[in-house]
């Protein structure tokens, strides 16, 4: 893996092929768990861990798996890894484990994990695959973090609420009350808020892309008489 490939994988994961905003994979947890920053980031990191490990373990065995059982084997590997992560969380981060609940085992069915296994890890060497899994996971985590942060901020006026569940009671004071005496805009933390928020994030990304493209072109195109149809 040379520097260019490295850059490409990182860029793909975090921006160009971002699983949350571009591939639109793994929406179920993305929408369900992003009602607070801590929940969102925790699930994002758990997914990242699983993706890194699964890509890293699928890549070395890829040539020994015959085509007809490719997917069962990948699912098996992913399921094992998820279960391991679940045990670990249950043991050492019980509060978070309760909050994330069903969504931890659901990482198995998160299409993004299998999608990376299929489209990248099954065709690339272990190191690149691990990096790809990690970066895709980080990309998802980033989207989750932004979505969770925004929803929590608008919905409750706080940030990092529930941080004690992840880091223990010592972190209780870390909760930031950004807007004191806030009425709470419940829509944001209820399920519709997730859809609206994701829609806005995707729109925002597209807008940034378009702007970058326009800048890249930036040749003085004739602007006059420009008309939109309809």
């Amino acid at each position: 893996m040379n520097a260019n490939e490295f850059k490409e994988i990182v860029h793909n994961g975090l921006w160009k092929q971002n699983p949350g905003l571009v591939q639109l994979l793994g929406l179920c947890p993305l929408l369900a768990i992003s009602n607070s920053l801590v929940n969102a980031v925790s699930l994002g990191l758990a997914t990242t861990l699983v993706m890194t490990l699964s890509s890293a373990s699928i890549a070395p065995v890829r040539s020994y798996v015959p085509n007809e059982i490719r997917i069962p084997v990948f699912v098996l590997i992913i399921a094992v890894l998820v279960t391991v992560v679940q045990y670990l969380m249950n043991a050492y981060m019980y509060g978070l484990y309760v909050v994330l609940g069903i969504f931890i085992p659901l990482i198995v069915t998160n299409c993004i994990v299998l999608a990376r296994a299929e489209s990248f890890a099954s065709k690339n060497p272990p190191l690149a695959s691990a990096l790809d899994g990690f970066m895709m996971g980080l990309g998802l985590t980033a989207v989750l973090a932004v979505l969770g942060g925004v929803r929590e901020l608008i919905g409750k006026g706080t940030l990092l609420s529930g941080i004690d569940l992840a880091l223990g009671d010592g972190a209780k004071d870390w909760v930031i009350h950004v807007i004191p005496d806030y009425h709470g805009f419940l829509l944001a933390i209820l399920p519709p808020g997730a859809f609206i928020g994701l829609g806005l994030l995707i729109a925002g990304k597209n807008w940034l892309n378009l702007r970058a493209e326009a800048k890249a072109r930036s040749n003085p195109a004739p602007l006059s008489n420009e008309a939109v149809q309809g």
Binding site: L223, S224, N225, E226, A227, V228, Q229, G230
Partner: peptide, 11 residues
């Protein structure tokens, strides 16, 4: 031709 209706201000 497709009818062109100027909705955007002409730059």
């Amino acid at each position: 031709k497709h009818p062109v209706i100027t909705l955007r201000k002409i730059a």
